[in-house]
């Protein structure tokens, strides 16, 4: 097995693990962070797939903007709940 294949396998495993954690983590804030990590790993995967265009877009839109949107939403929902308490 060549090193590149091994790296690909490792990256795929990391992707699966981060996705799993994203969905399974009890704390929603951490889940959003993990999702951003997932997005960055995905960026790597796109690069490995010779798709730099997607990698750029994934980093900026998938991980960046979606992550920001999610974090903002988590913050908003938390803030509102806290203020209600």
């Amino acid at each position: 097995m060549s090193t590149s294949l091994a790296f690909d396998l490792l990256l795929a495993a990391a992707l699966l693990w981060s996705a799993w954690r994203t969905l399974a983590t009890p704390d929603i804030f951490r889940a959003a962070i993990l999702f951003i990590v997932f997005g960055l790993l995905l960026t790597l995967a796109w690069a490995r797939l010779a798709a730099p265009d997607i990698a750029l877009a994934e980093a900026a839109i998938g991980a960046g903007l979606t992550g920001a949107l999610l974090l903002d939403a988590v913050g908003a929902l938390r803030a509102r709940r806290d203020s209600a308490l």
Binding site: A19, T22, L23, I28, A31, A32, F35, F38, L42, A45, W46, L49, A51, I54, G62, T66, L70, A73, V74, L77
Partner: peptide, 20 residues
């Protein structure tokens, strides 16, 4: 929020299949 995350994971999976 978590369902939305799950939807994004699902979509990313489909994208990977498409290119991969």
């Amino acid at each position: 929020l978590r369902r939305i995350l799950a939807f994004n994971v699902m979509g990313s999976g489909a994208f990977l299949v498409l290119v991969g």
